[in-house]
Every structure is written in structure tokens, then in C-alpha cells.
């Protein structure tokens, strides 16, 4: 299993991938992608028990569902660098005839993706369905999911969140990317959601906080704690406090880079802040 330094090196490379992918097509969502780079790298390299090869049913391995599909750049980079498809294919992001659609999909057969996401708020339900099937199949592996905080404004989430506790779905760890930003501004300005911890607890979930969501050791510790809480009759929620745009100074602490690509000059600045570690695609 890779150590923290190796995970950090991969994270730096993933940041470069994200910047280069969105820059090339002058579109895509770098802010949330950068904020979740440490989480994705830790999840795929260290936390999940997964098979080397991909099959849709995923029996006998942990599963991951990305609900906030717009952060596809980080998802694609980490999938490629975890061996699901050639790293060179990142070069086709958002281009015509590519498997790397703007938002993730199963439609083009990209290994590593089990459901389309992009229209927000659907990931809880899908992940919970997969968790139910794991129970029916007596498969002891876990289901992981990731959701944006702004995304929780969609009502369907709360249908799923209510269902999970009522049905004792305790083989799921759902992480909320708590970066406090959405397209139009701070979540507290657009539609304040109050205490997410209080809400999830009121809905019957066990909640784990990861205050330093861009610190790999903090992620590994927090997720280990979350894993230890599975199998106890309650679903587990991780509130992962991240910084949008993390690792590129001018993209941090603002919603401005939610869905905007850097220009040539900005790209160079961002890449200079993240020196090549494992080789660019």
C-alpha cells in the first residue's frame, strides 16, 4: 500500500492532469476537482478494496459512486492512474468521440464508471440501491459515494438519506465535499443548509468529521474511523471539509473556478505550483 508521500506525489500529478484537461478544451470544472484530489487518491489507492479489472457488477469488491459528476476531471485522472484505462486517454476529455464525456457516463463504456451522473442529487439513491444488492448477495464489501454540499439542496437526496437509516443500510460510507461553494456563490448565501451534521444525525446517520479534508493523513484516519463504524445498523456519513481549488493559489477559497478553465498564463502558474511527479500524459 502506498505511503503518504507516494499518495502526495500522485495527488500533485492529478492536479496537473486536472489543470491540463480543462485548459485544453477550455471547459470543465477544476475547482471542485482540485478540492477532492487528496480524497480520490486516498480512496482509490489506499481505502477501497477493489479489483484490478473492471466489471459492472462489482461483486466481491468495494464500489464508488460519484454523485456530483461535474468533478469528472479528478475522477478520470484517478481512474486512469489507478489502471482502469490508459492515462493517455485523458487527452480526449470532452472531445468528440471520447469515452471521457463532460460528465461521467457508462454509455461509452469507460471502465470505472457504474452510473451516469451530472444531473445532481441522484447519487445517494443509486449508491443505496447498490448497497442493498450487496446485502442480498451476501457481499461484505462496502459502497462509497461522494456528493457536493451544494448538491444537497436537491430534494431527492433527503429521500435517500431517510430511506437509508430506516432500512439499516450500514454498508455505505457517503462523503459530503464540504467546500461551502456552489456556482452562484457561497452555499450559505445561495441557500443556507444549516448544520449538515445535525441534519444527518436527525435522519439517523452516524457522522464523522474530517476537518482537514486536503490532508492525506487526516483523510486516511477519518475514513478508517468511518469504516470501523459500518456494520452497526446505521449508514455512515463523512463531512469532508475541503478547499475548492486546493493546490493552485489563485483558485482557492472562491467559487469563481467552479466551472471555468484557466487560460495559458494561468495554466503555467498552476503547473509551476505543482511540479511533475509521475509524468504528464
Amino acid at each position: 500500500m502506498p505511503n503518504t508521500q507516494q499518495l502526495q506525489d500522485l495527488t500533485t500529478q492529478v492536479r496537473r492532469d486536472i489543470l491540463r484537461m480543462v485548459h485544453k478544451v477550455n471547459s470543465g470544472h477544476p475547482g471542485g476537482s482540485l478540492g477532492c484530489a487528496e480524497f480520490f487518491v486516498s480512496l482509490y489507492q489506499n481505502i477501497m478494496d477493489r479489483k484490478e479489472t473492471f466489471d459492472m457488477d462489482g461483486i466481491g469488491e468495494d464500489l464508488f459512486f460519484l454523485s456530483n459528476g461535474h468533478i469528472s476531471p479528478v475522477f478520470y485522472s484517478v481512474l486512469a492512474r489507478s489502471g482502469y484505462f490508459p492515462v493517455n486517454e485523458l487527452n480526449t476529455f470532452r472531445l468528440i468521440n471520447s469515452r471521457l464525456q463532460g460528465h461521467p457516463t457508462t454509455h461509452e463504456g469507460l471502465p470505472g464508471v457504474r452510473v451516469a451522473s451530472g444531473s445532481l442529487g441522484q447519487g445517494f439513491s443509486v449508491a443505496l440501491g447498490a448497497a442493498e444488492t450487496k446485502k442480498l448477495n451476501h457481499d461484505k464489501h462496502l459502497v462509497y459515494s461522494l456528493h457536493g454540499d451544494g448538491e444537497l439542496q436537491e430534494g431527492q437526496n433527503w429521500e435517500g438519506i431517510m430511506y437509508a437509516a430506516a432500512n439499516n443500510i450500514d454498508n455505505i460510507i457517503s462523503t459530503i465535499d464540504l467546500n461551502g461553494q456552489q456556482i452562484d456563490g457561497a452555499t450559505d448565501d445561495v441557500l443556507p443548509m444549516g448544520s449538515l451534521r445535525a441534519k444527518f444525525e436527525a435522519f439517523g446517520w452516524t457522522v464523522v468529521d474530517i476537518e482537514q479534508g486536503n490532508d492525506i493523513d487526516a483523510i486516511l484516519t477519518g475514513m478508517a474511523e468511518a469504516k470501523a463504524l459500518t456494520g452497526k445498523g446505521k449508514p455512515v456519513c463523512v463531512l469532508l471539509k475541503t478547499v475548492m481549488g486546493n493546490g493552485v493559489d489563485f483558485m482557492m477559497h472562491t467559487h469563481a473556478w467552479h466551472g471555468k478553465a484557466p487560460n495559458d498564463e494561468q495554466l503555467e502558474i498552476g503547473l509551476a505550483q505543482n511540479p511533475e511527479t509521475l509524468g504528464d500524459y
Binding site: 439513491s125 444488492t133 442480498l136 448477495n137 457481499d139 430534494g155 429521500e159 435517500g160
Partner: peptide, 24 residues
Amino acid sequence: RFFQVGIAEANMIGLAAGMTIGGK
């Protein structure tokens, strides 16, 4: 093999989609 989801049709459709993963 029966799942009462309550008055929450959106969740029902999503659950069903997820349940197919693993062969149901």
C-alpha cells in the same frame, strides 16, 4: 426481495438503478 420505499418515487428509481449493479 421486496422494498417499500415510501412516497419517494425519485429515490425508488435511483435505488432500482443501483440494485442492478450486482445482478438484480
